[in-house]
Write a protein that binds this DNA or RNA. Structure first.
Length: 506
RNA sequence: GGCGGAUUAGUGUAGUGGCCUAGCACGUAGCUCUCUCACGGCUUAGACCCGGGUUCGAUUCCCGGAUCCGCUGCCA
């Protein structure tokens, strides 16, 4: 029999900006799907009307667009298994809730939130399960006509799953192997809320995965404890034979200290935890994003891919195609991965270097504009070529090249102390004459040779001359090759800078 | 508390009974290149959670402990 076509899904809840951990989960789903010639669907799990945040759905779609992760089906792209928004699937869920009710695998419960809260207060480890359900207000304890009466009266009930006790449930996880849990410790989870006519995650998830033909459920480790419930639900529905395979991914942990990565860590340590900048509609607060911080999408993908998975070879830089080709679930690690954003910076650095000088120059244009400067692309490309490998982000370009656009007005004291010698003024005055004799500053190598010969003929110390010269042009002992600098600056500006420095530096 | 998961240098990880005097990368320190600062190259320091057991031999298998993580909601 031919293998079923692989179908996986990413199913976020639109409760705010997409966390970077969610991005990684989706990436793994994508890699797995593409590796196996399958489809990736995007399903929006908006079954919690209380926590819905407007704009979150668009944010999710735009994030993956930026990252180069494409969905084959789902919200934003359509498909034959829609609707893909759970809030639009109410009628479907009702039918399946009824199926469970009819089969005796679920029951109505009328306990109010206050009553449940009281029970939790009274009993230390209270949970609604096979031991306690008979003391609840539900269709198991109430006469049938009373249940009917309450429902018809519009009383807000919930439907709970009726977990069958004393059963060992085995979850065969692709990452962790077999995990066995006894059904006695499971509680009778709420499957459906009459109040908003919506199912909870557990029900909606199983129904949708089944209806949408999902073959593999790849999700975060926080779902591992509820996996047995999901297995049971497949059984109660009679879908055990087509149940998807599960793979629970390790969590992303804080860079330091304990706990899983949170938004606050990003604020505290100065790195984004969201793919895109997010403006919270309620509070107006802004959270930084990888895109706006100058990360290249390829770098983010590469970095994330290697946080919890590795191909077992020493190579670390991979294109999306290479990742797809190499990806396999059995090389996903089991333990949580600390989020090492410094490594992320390194990845960005590498990807920026990979880009052509012109591409990087284009990234520089808006930054330059913000500083109030414009520069034609050819010249900017040349400037970028001189400093490209020393930057981690496009914005670093300004720190590296600002002196090209703004002549130094003051001179770095440390540099002066170390490099400015007593004979510097004399050397530079003479050097100016040599520079004046140069026909074309763009003849970098030729000019260098001329100056070097001159320095040698005078018996001057090369370091002294060059460093002093550099300070007058840049304002400090830093920057690219000096003959490239004067090439960009041009003869007039170069001479002006030296002259000015000679009057200012004492 | 209960249940489940995890545990190789600061971090991400490779290795899976002897090839491990434990590999790679980021970060750190140093050297080098050089007119400077970077980049690059080279090098140094740095780890198998602890205790038992199995075995001729355990980082690798088993058990226990510790620690960390997750779940324990009419959230997902």
């Amino acid at each position: 029999m031919a293998e079923k076509k692989v179908r996986v899904r990413f199913a976020p809840s639109p409760t705010g900006p997409l966390h970077i951990g969610g991005v990684r989960t989706c990436l793994y789903n994508y890699l797995f799907a593409k590796k196996n010639g399958g489809d990736l669907l995007l399903r929006i799990e908006d079954t919690d009307s209380q926590r819905f945040v407007p704009g979150a759905e668009d944010y999710i779609i735009e994030s993956f667009k930026w990252l180069g992760i494409k969905f084959d089906e789902g919200v934003g792209v359509g498909g034959d298994n829609g609707p893909y928004r759970q809030s639009e699937r109410r009628e479907i869920y009702k039918k399946y809730v009824q199926q469970l009710l009819d089969a005796g695998y679920a029951y109505y419960a009328f306990d109010t939130p206050a009553e449940l809260e009281a029970k939790r207060q009274e009993t230390p480890n209270f949970q609604y399960d096979s031991h306690t359900r008979m003391s609840g207000v539900n269709s198991l304890t109430l006469p049938a006509d009373e249940v009917k009466r309450r429902i018809e009266a519009g009383e807000k009930y919930v439907v709970r799953v009726k977990i069958q006790p004393d059963e060992d449930i085995e979850v065969d996880d692709m990452v962790r192997g077999k995990v066995v849990i006894n059904s006695n410790i499971l509680d009778d989870k709420v499957l459906y809320k009459a109040a908003d006519e919506l199912p909870t995650y557990h029900l909606a998830n199983i129904v949708d995965d089944h209806l949408m033909g999902i073959t593999h459920v790849i999700r975060g480790e926080e779902w591992l404890p509820s996996a047995p419930l999901h297995v049971l639900l497949y059984r109660y529905f009679g879908w055990a034979d087509t149940m998807p395979r599960f793979a629970h991914l390790p969590l992303l942990l804080k860079p330091e200290g304990n706990g899983k990565l949170s938004k606050r860590d990003g604020d505290r340590l100065g790195f984004p935890v969201f793919p895109l900048e997010w403006h919270d509609p309620a509070s107006g607060a802004i959270s930084s994003g990888y895109r706006e911080s100058g990360y290249q999408p390829e770098a983010v993908v590469n970095f994330l891919a290697l946080l919890g998975w590795n191909p077992g070879i020493d190579q670390e830089l991979f294109s999306m195609d290479e990742l797809i080709n190499l990806f396999s679930i059995d090389r996903v690690s089991k333990s949580g991965a600390r989020f090492n954003y410094e490594k992320g910076i390194w990845f960005n650095h590498e990807y920026l270097i990979k880009k052509s000088d012109e591409e990087v120059a284009k990234l520089f244009v808006p930054i330059l504009k913000e500083k109030g400067f414009e520069c034609d692309l050819a010249k900017l490309t040349y400037i970028v070529s001189l400093v490209k490998e020393r930057i981690n982000f496009p914005k670093d370009l300004w720190d590296q090249t600002s002196f090209f656009f703004v002549a130094p007005t003051e001179y770095d004291e440390k540099s002066l102390k170390k490099r400015w010698k007593e004979e510097s003024p004399k050397c530079l005055t003479e050097l100016m004459e040599v520079l004046k004799g140069l026909s074309d500053f763009s003849k970098v190598e030729e000019n260098e040779q001329i100056v070097l010969d001159w320095v040698a003929s005078k018996g001057y110390n090369l370091g002294t001359v060059m460093n002093s010269f550099r300070i007058t042009l840049v304002g400090a002992a830093k920057g690219p090759h000096i003959f490239n600098i004067i090439d960009v600056l041009g003869k007039e500006e170069t001479l002006a800078r030296v002259e000015r420095a000679l009057t200012v530096i004492k």
